[in-house]
Amino acid sequence: MAAVKQSNVSDEVAVEINNMNKWYGSFHVLRDIDLTVYQGERIVIAGPSGSGKSTLIRCINALEEHQKGSITVDGTILSNDLKNIDKIRSEVGMVFQHFNLFPHLTILENCTLAPIWVRKTPKKEAEEIAMHFLEKVKIPEQADKFPGQLSGGQQQRVAIARSLCMRPRIMLFDEPTSALDPEMISEVLDTMIELAEEGMTMLCVTHEMGFARKVANRVIFMDQGQIVEQNEPEEFFNNPQSERTKLFLSQILGH
C-alpha cells in the first residue's frame, strides 16, 4: 500500500481538461469541468448516480462528444479530426462496467484483435503480448475459451488485459466492479492495484472506497455534472469540506 502511494507522480501532463461542457439535448450533463491529470496519477472519481462521472471519462476517449471546452490527451487535442480520435483511442485503454468482451472470439483473440488490426502488430507477436498480459491478470490457462465460459471476475480481468495489449498510457475504468458478484470484486481490484503499482495513469469511476483509500492519490467528488471537491484520499475521507460530500460519504460509508 505504501509502495503505491509513494510511486512518483511526474509533472508531465497526461490529460488536460479545460472548461469542458456537455449537453444531452437540453440537459446539461457536464458543467465547466477543469481537470489536469499528471502522468502516473491514480484518480478515483466518486459521486451519486447521474452525476456525470461516467460521461466525463467517456468523453476522454471520445465515446461521447463534448460541446464546449477542450480535452488534451498526451499532447493531442481531441478535435473533430478522426485521425486524432484514433490516436487518442489507441493510447487510452478503457474498461467497462459490463466487460464488453466479444463473445464470438476466444479470450486470446479478444486480446490480439486490436493490436493486429489497429497497431498492425504481427499476429505471433500480438499473441505473445496477449499471453504476457493474460499471465499478468492470472488467467493464461483460459486463453482458448470463450468469454461466456468465464466468471464475471475473470471476464473483467480479460477486459483489463485486452486494454493493456494496446500498451495504453492511460487507463479509464468505468465502474469495473459494479456488475460483479461480491466474491469476485477483490480479484479485479487486486489486478487494478497491481497496475497502479507499476505506475499506470488511471482514472477510475468506482464506488469501492476501500480501493480509493488504498490506491488513489486524488479523489474527485462529482455531483450534478460538476466537480464538487477533490483532495488527497486521507483528507477527503477524514475531513470532507462540502456538505454534499459529507452527505454522500455518510450514505455510502454509513453501514
Binding site: 476517449n61 483511442r89 489507441s90 487510452v92 485503454g93 468482451l101 466479444f102 486494454s163 494496446m166
Partner: peptide
Amino acid sequence: EAGDSLGLD
C-alpha cells in the same frame, strides 16, 4: 463501444 475504445474504425 468496446470496438471504438480499442481504436477500431
